[in-house]
Computed example of a mutant assay.
Amino acid sequence: MAHQQHKTVIDAAVHCAYECEHCEDACLGNMPECARLCRDCGEICWTSAAFISRGSRFIPQIVQSCIAICEACAKECEKHNSDHCQSCAQACRRAIEEYRKVASIAGVA
Rank of each mutant, 00 (worst) to 15 (best):
2 A>C: 10
2 A>L: 05
2 A>P: 04
4 Q>E: 12
6 H>W: 10
6 H>K: 08
8 T>P: 01
9 V>Y: 00
11 D>Y: 00
12 A>V: 10
12 A>G: 07
14 V>Q: 04
15 H>C: 07
16 C>H: 02
17 A>G: 08
17 A>Q: 03
17 A>I: 04
20 C>N: 05
20 C>A: 11
21 E>K: 14
21 E>W: 12
21 E>T: 15
22 H>A: 15
23 C>S: 15
24 E>T: 06
24 E>Y: 08
27 C>T: 08
27 C>H: 11
27 C>Q: 12
28 L>V: 13
28 L>E: 13
29 G>P: 03
30 N>M: 11
30 N>E: 07
30 N>T: 08
30 N>K: 10
31 M>D: 09
33 E>W: 07
33 E>V: 13
34 C>M: 12
34 C>Q: 09
36 R>A: 15
36 R>L: 15
37 L>K: 04
38 C>D: 12
38 C>Y: 04
38 C>I: 06
40 D>F: 14
41 C>N: 01
41 C>V: 04
42 G>L: 11
43 E>R: 14
44 I>P: 00
44 I>L: 09
44 I>T: 03
46 W>Y: 04
46 W>H: 05
47 T>H: 03
47 T>N: 04
48 S>C: 10
51 F>Y: 10
53 S>M: 06
53 S>V: 04
53 S>W: 01
56 S>Q: 06
56 S>N: 09
56 S>F: 08
57 R>G: 14
60 P>T: 12
60 P>D: 09
61 Q>I: 10
61 Q>C: 05
62 I>R: 06
65 S>V: 08
65 S>M: 12
66 C>S: 04
67 I>H: 01
68 A>Y: 08
69 I>T: 05
69 I>G: 00
70 C>P: 00
70 C>F: 00
70 C>A: 09
72 A>Y: 06
74 A>M: 03
75 K>T: 07
76 E>C: 13
76 E>H: 13
76 E>L: 13
76 E>F: 10
77 C>T: 06
78 E>P: 06
79 K>I: 11
82 S>N: 07
83 D>I: 06
87 S>Y: 08
89 A>M: 03
90 Q>W: 02
91 A>D: 03
92 C>D: 02
92 C>L: 03
92 C>R: 01
93 R>L: 02
94 R>L: 13
94 R>C: 06
94 R>D: 10
96 I>K: 01
97 E>F: 03
97 E>L: 13
97 E>I: 14
98 E>R: 14
98 E>P: 03
99 Y>N: 02
100 R>Y: 00
100 R>T: 10
100 R>A: 04
100 R>E: 07
101 K>W: 02
101 K>G: 04
101 K>L: 11
101 K>A: 10
102 V>D: 02
103 A>Y: 01
104 S>P: 02
104 S>A: 15
105 I>D: 05
106 A>R: 15
106 A>D: 13
106 A>I: 13
107 G>C: 13
107 G>T: 14
107 G>I: 14
108 V>S: 08
109 A>R: 04
109 A>F: 00
